[in-house]
Write a protein that binds this DNA or RNA. Structure first.
Lengths: 347, 347
DNA sequence: CTGTTAGCGCATTCAG
DNA sequence: CTGAATGCGCTAACAG
C-alpha cells in the first residue's frame, strides 16, 4: 500500500511476497551467514526483480552510521582544496564512504555553521581546513566533546587535542626554496604572499626569513607583500601595484602560492621584466595549471591529493578504531614531504 | 540513559527535564503556532543549555526529506564543474539545502554507480552532467521512474523526458567565435577540441563548420584535432605533436575549451610562433585562470556559476512543486547566453 | 536457520 | 495549547 504511494519497495514488501520475515530478508541482504544460501538467492533475485533500493536513511538511523564523511574547506575556487577533496574522496570510496563537502566561503561564521550542520548526525566524521579568519576553536573542540572523529589539514595554527592533523612542513619547504634562490647568487629576494592571518603563509614567510638568516643575508621590508585581497582580479591589481611602485626591484621572488607567483610573473612581464632572465620566481603548491603557464612555474610541490588520502585514512581509522586511537601515528599528526620542482621561472 | 551513552541529547531528554511531552518539544522546536510562546521559550532555552542538536537522520526518516541535493559531475579536476557546483551550492544553501557531490571519474560505470547511490534515499533530487562515455540512458530514466527530481546540465546529448535541462547554445557560440576569426581576415582556421564522444564538443565543432559554410569558406581536415587523451600532460603532447607535424600552419585556431586553447598557445610558442601576431587563438569557457594566462585568453565566456544557480533553481522547483512541474519554463529546458570576451590572443 | 520484538529520534495524526 | 500513540524502514537482540 505505502509502497505504491511513494513507489518504493521495502524489505517488508519482499518479505511478504516471499512469505519470510523482515529480519530474514534484512539478513539475506547483508549476506549474513545465518541465512541459508537458497533463501539468500531467492531474496536477492526478487529484490532485483522488484527494483529494491535499501533506504540509506533508515539504515543510518538504525545502525548509527551514515558512511558519509563531512569535509569543510575554506572555499571551492582554490584548486588545492579540490585536490585534497579528490584525495579524500578517492580513499573514502574505496572504503565505502562518500564525502559531503561544505565551503566556508572564507568566513569564520560559515565555518561554524558548517560544523554545526555536521553535529546533526549526517556524517560519521569530519575533515576540515580552517579559514584565514578562524581564530578561536570552541567550535571544533565542541565537535571533539561530542565524540565526532575529526581530522584537520593544511592551515593548522593550533593543535586540537583529540583531532588528527595532516600538513606539510611549510617552514622547511620555504627555506629550501629560498636557499635555492640565494644559491643562484640573487642579491636581493622579495616575498609575495597571502594574508598574514593564514598560518601556512606565515610559516612560509618565516622560512623566507630563516633562509636569509642562515646565509647571513638580509632582505628589505619594502620587498615584502602580504596581500589582503581575495578575488583574483583584486589580487592582481594589488600585486601589480606593489611591484610597479618598487624603487628597486629584487632579483628574485619567493611566493607563498602558485597563484601569487603567476600574478607576480604577469605583473613583472607587464612591467617589462623577463622571467627568469631578469628576475627569478618560485611558487608554492604545484597545481595542475602551474605547468601550463608560460613560462612553466618552478615551485615547491605540495602533495595535495596524497594529503587528502592521508586525511581520509586517519579519519576512517578514528571512526573504526574508536575515537582517540590513531594507527597512523601516535602524535595524531602526519607531516607530508614536499619537493622542489624546477621548471622555467628559475635559471 | 541512552543519552549518556552516546552523549547525545534528544527531544525526549528535553521533554523529561521540562516535564513536557516529546510532541510539544518537537512542535516548539519547529516554532509551531500550536505552542504557547512561553513554552517555546523554555524549550529553546533548555535545548540551548543542554546542547541539543536535532538528529537530521531521524528527521529525514520521519519527514521523507533530506534537504540534500545530489550532484554528479564527470570529474573534480575540471574547474568548470567546480564552478557549476559552486553555483548550485550557492543557490541551494540560500534555500536550506546542502549538496553532495559525486564524481564519475570520467567513467560511465561510476556514473551509474553514483545514480544508484542516489536512489537509496539520501538526496531529494539529483543534478547531473553526463560523462563523455555515457551513451545509454536507462539509469537516468530509472531515476525519473522512481520520481526523483532530476536536472541535467552541460553535456546533454539526449533530452530526458521529465528531467530539467540547463545548457548553453554551443553551436551558435562557436559560430560567433569562428566568425570573428573569419572577419579578422584569417585565410585558414584550425580546430582543436576534446573527444568527439562529448556532445558539447561536437556542437562546437559543428559551429566551426557552419561558420565556414556561412561565409563560403573552407577549412582543411588536417587542421582539425579531436584529442583523445585525458590527462593534462598527455593532452599537451597530443596537441604539441599534432601542431608540430602540420605542414602548413593555419592563421588561427578555435579551441573547444580554454584548456585546449592554452595547450595550443603553449605548443605554438614552443614552435616559435607568436600569439596573436602570427596566429590567433580563441578558447571556450572563460575559467578564472584564463585571464591569468600570458597572453590573456580571448574566449567564449560560459556562465558556469549561473548555470549552477539555474540548475539548483529548477531542481528545487521540481522538488517543491511536484515532479513534472517546472516554473522556470515549459520545455523543462533553459538555454543560458554566452558572450565573447576579447583579450590578448586575438588581434 | 528463521521469526518476534524492540528500538533508532523525530514528526504527526488524533484525542483531549 | 498539550499529550499519547503510531510509524518512517531498517538493524539487532533474543527466542526458538
Amino acid at each position: 500500500m505505502k509502497a505504491e504511494i511513494n513507489n518504493r519497495v521495502r524489505l517488508e514488501d519482499i518479505a511478504r511476497t516471499l512469505k519470510l520475515s523482515i529480519a530474514t530478508v534484512s539478513r539475506a541482504m547483508s549476506d549474513s551467514s545465518r541465512v541459508k544460501q537458497e533463501t539468500k538467492n531467492k531474496v536477492l533475485a526478487i529484490a532485483e526483480e522488484m527494483g529494491y533500493r535499501p533506504n540509506q536513511i533508515a539504515k543510518s538511523l538504525s545502525s548509527g552510521k551514515t558512511n558519509i564523511l563531512g569535509v569543510i574547506i575554506p572555499r571551492y575556487d582554490e584548486p588545492f582544496f579540490i585536490e585534497v577533496c579528490r584525495g579524500i574522496d578517492y580513499y573514502a570510496r574505496k572504503h565505502n564512504y562518500r564525502i559531503l563537502i561544505s565551503s566556508s566561503r572564507n568566513s569564520f561564521n560559515y565555518e561554524k555553521e558548517n560544523v554545526l550542520a555536521f553535529e546533526r548526525g549526517t556524517v560519521d566524521g569530519v575533515a576540515m581546513c580552517f579559514t584565514h579568519e578562524t581564530n578561536s576553536f570552541e567550535h571544533v573542540e565542541e565537535l571533539i566533546d561530542r565524540k565526532m572523529p575529526l581530522v584537520l589539514f593544511d592551515n593548522i595554527n593550533h593543535k586540537i587535542d583529540g583531532a588528527g592533523h595532516v600538513k606539510i612542513d611549510d617552514f622547511s619547504s620555504a627555506i629550501k626554496a629560498v636557499e635555492d634562490l640565494i644559491k643562484h647568487k640573487n642579491e636581493s629576494i622579495g616575498y609575495i604572499g597571502g594574508t598574514s592571518k593564514k598560518s601556512v603563509f606565515n610559516k612560509r614567510f618565516d622560512g623566507f626569513v630563516e633562509a636569509h638568516k642562515k646565509h647571513q643575508k638580509s632582505f628589505k621590508k619594502q620587498h615584502v607583500l602580504n596581500c589582503k585581497s581575495y578575488h583574483q582580479e583584486h589580487e592582481f591589481y594589488e600585486v601589480f601595484n606593489f611591484l610597479s611602485k618598487l624603487r628597486e626591484m629584487p632579483n628574485a621572488f619567493f611566493c607563498s602560492t602558485d597563484n601569487y607567483a603567476i600574478l607576480c610573473i604577469k605583473s613583472l612581464t607587464k612591467l617589462g621584466y623577463k622571467v627568469p632572465k631578469d628576475i627569478e620566481v618560485i611558487g608554492f603548491g604545484n597545481l595542475h595549471y602551474s605547468s601550463m603557464f608560460i613560462p612553466e612555474l618552478t615551485c615547491v610541490s605540495q602533495p595535495s591529493f596524497k594529503m587528502g588520502e592521508k586525511v581520509a585514512e586517519m579519519l576512517l581509522n578514528k571512526i573504526d578504531n574508536g575515537f582517540f586511537v590513531s594507527d597512523v601515528d601516535q602524535d595524531n599528526e602526519v607531516v607530508l614531504p614536499t619537493k622542489m620542482v624546477y621548471r622555467d621561472t628559475t635559471r
